[in-house]
Design a protein around this nucleic acid. Structure first.
Lengths: 215, 215
DNA sequence: ACCTGAACACCGTTCAAGT
DNA sequence: ACCTGAACACCGTTCAAGT
């Protein structure tokens, strides 16, 4: 029987993670600073460091939480539709936590729990007739498209919130030289509407169709 | 004839932009801070503010420089190949300045000079038989894929430089549960090689093929 | 007009000390 | 063991003053 010495903990890792998630949810990923986090927990900044090595570890722990809560819906039997559904779910899950994509952009693989997505996609691609190598390449193309969509839309949302850029694009389109860019001039009026619409899935379907062309 | 008064300028906007570009080129986008920039120019931080409103304006000016130096190669006559060549050029140009993509992720449109890319792509798509709206959607899908590729690869390069993650992925794959993720287990050994290879173009071709399916 | 110096309100993190 | 307090080395930016 071990005797616990020292004073009882006021803070726990779980509390820290909860507070951090709340901060991000409320004010965005940039609002997560060690000092603000500490203030919200009503402790010194350094108290947090006793439970978490540094900010990077904190972010990785938050990612693990996201990964742990990942959806694994029933997927269609048809492998092509299975690819699409798996990618769509991956997209929708991550689109709810765009900061996570920013944190891990690099790693097309997330933490172990999130491996479910590439596993399903690669497996479905192989079932469709791709070689293992081509299936991995197909997964990567899907990941680029998906990560790009999430990052671009998240950044666009920030702009809209900050409002500093709406005018920028408007100015750009207003000043559009109709002879130099005739095609863009034609679509200028529709651009915003088309841009705000969710077109993830049609693009995904086009990509998958192209990746599986001839099989 | 206007009489110039006050002391002669030691600093110019052009000098500031040059120094800023050099800083980014040497040490990455994170290395660009107003204070470091000032130090490199051998002036007070605040001297810079006399030529540039703030950091955001500085970044936008740098983007303009990138846009101004954009390549406009002869494009193939075949509209499908024209889409691909335009996208490929856009990609290659931006891949050389990944920080620019990070700055503007949001805006699928860059500054006026860079409108050449969407103009070519949308125009080629319409020539291929897409409606104006579908052509814009096609351009957006291409932009997501392209921006995603650049951002993911840039982040991966940073990781490789910092080296903090290579071990992470290795650990992940070593600990891979072969029964839970059979497909990933199969490709685990090849993953790094496949991931480092440049597969932008095949993915792009697949995407374009899917977007133009049936035309 | 162009630049300096001091200052403010922030960061992440280290280190020594308190209980 | 758990936390505080002071400090360090950074940020971007404002404001008042110098030449």
């Amino acid at each position: 029987m071990t005797t616990r010495t020292g004073r009882p903990p006021r803070l726990s890792r779980a509390q820290i993670l909860t507070a951090a998630s709340e901060l991000i949810a409320q004010d965005g990923a940039d609002a997560l600073t060690m000092r603000r986090l500490a203030a919200r927990l009503d402790v010194t900044p350094m108290a947090v460091y006793h439970h978490v090595r540094n900010k990077e570890e904190l972010l990785l722990l938050l990612l693990d939480e996201v990964a742990a809560g990942i959806e694994r819906p029933e997927l269609p039997d048809d492998p092509r539709e299975r690819m699409i559904r798996a990618a769509r779910t991956m997209h929708d899950t991550l689109a709810r936590v765009p900061w996570a994509v920013e944190v891990l952009t690099a790693d097309d693989l997330l933490s172990p729990a999130a491996l479910w997505y590439p596993e399903q996609i690669v497996d479905a691609a192989v079932t469709c007739g791709l070689s293992a190598a081509d299936a991995v390449r197909a997964y990567r193309a899907i990941w680029y498209y998906t990560a790009g969509e999430i990052l671009v839309r998240a950044a666009a949302a920030r702009r809209r919130a900050a409002d500093d850029r709406k005018t920028f694009r408007a100015r750009l389109f207003d000043s559009l030289d109709h002879t130099e860019w005739p095609r863009l001039a034609t679509v200028a009026d529709e651009w915003d509407r088309l841009t705000e619409a969710d077109t993830y899935e049609p693009g995904l379907r086009a990509l998958v169709e192209g990746l599986l062309a001839g099989r």
